[in-house]
Structures are given as C-alpha cells and as structure tokens.
C-alpha cells in the first residue's frame, strides 16, 4: 500500500459509484422485461459494468504511477470556495461576491489599490450590467435578508 495516492482514491470512488449504479440499474429500475424489451436500468447498468472493470484496472495502474503533486494555493482556493458558497446562502450572492473579490485581492494577492479599484469596477460592471440589468437574474438574497424581510 506504499504507493496509495489520489489516483487510487479516484479509481476507488468511481468503482463504488459504478457498484451503486449497477445495483440500482439491475434491482431498482430493471434491465429486461418479459418480452425482451430493454428497461430504464439496462443502459446505466451496462455503463456501470464497464466502469467497474475500468476502475479496477485504474486502481491497479495507479499503484505504479507517481503521486499527483498538490500545492497550497489550490487548497486556499478550495477553502475560499466553500466559504463563499456558505456566505452566498447567508448574506446573499452579490454582497458575498463583492466582499470575496476585494478580500482575495487584498489578503492573498496583495494587489495595489489602483489595480484593485479598477478590477472591482470592471468585474462589477460586467456582473451588474450583464447579469442584473440585462439578464435580470433574481440573485440569492440570503437567509439574513429573508429573515428581515419576511
């Protein structure tokens, strides 16, 4: 198990997923009816069977591969995305995005003030102009807004 790495984990996850699909396809949705006509489970179960075999091969192959190299900035991005989704649900989408946009540049990138103001104005204009004004998307208001208003 010395070479167990994210490549093995991915192949193992697809293996589990294939098992679920195969089981539901055969036992829940059915494969053939009495008159040899295909049922909704046939196609997904067939694909899952292929994936099952490929995932097994992938797991074996992954033990010979070099582990993937993950770097800290990717984890920063992932963590910020989770926080951003939570903030969107709580405080609303547009305010959360604005705060995120500014904070990321100030705290992580140390962007100069001039570039920060300019980029905020440009991206803000795109978001407001295209999505709010033109497409009239009713963006998420967030739990706090809903609690106050209703």
């Amino acid at each position: 198990m010395r070479n167990l790495n994210s490549r093995t984990v991915i192949a193992f996850c697809t293996f589990l997923l294939a098992l679920v699909w195969l089981y539901l396809g055969i036992y829940e949705y059915g494969v053939w009816d009495a008159r040899h006509r295909p049922l909704p489970g046939l196609f997904p179960a067939g694909i899952a069977a292929v994936l099952l075999a490929a995932s097994l091969a992938g797991m074996v192959q992954s033990l010979r591969e070099k582990p993937a190299d993950y770097r800290r900035p990717a984890f920063e991005v992932a963590a910020s995305l989770v926080l951003l989704v939570a903030a969107c649900f709580t405080f609303g989408m547009l305010p959360s995005l604005l705060v995120y946009f500014v904070l990321w540049q100030v705290l992580v990138e140390k962007t100069p003030v001039r570039a920060l103001v300019l980029s905020t104005l440009v991206v803000g204009a795109i978001v407001w102009g295209v999505f709010v004004w033109w497409l009239q998307i009713p963006f998420e208001n967030g739990i706090i807004y809903d609690l106050i208003m209703y």
Binding site: L81, L84, F101, A115, V123, I126, V127, F131, I137
Partner: peptide, 29 residues
Amino acid sequence: VPVGVMIPSIITICFVGAYATTNSMYGVV
C-alpha cells in the same frame, strides 16, 4: 492582466454564470 486579478474575476463570473443557468444555488453547488 495579473493572475491575482484573474483568479477572483473568473470565480465571480463562474458563480453568477452558474446561478443564472438555474436561477438557484443548486447550479452554483
């Protein structure tokens, strides 16, 4: 355009674009 500016810009466009498709946070998730 510095990468530091591109990162939050792309994330912002991804969020509003995904939301616009479904009109719900489901698209964002």
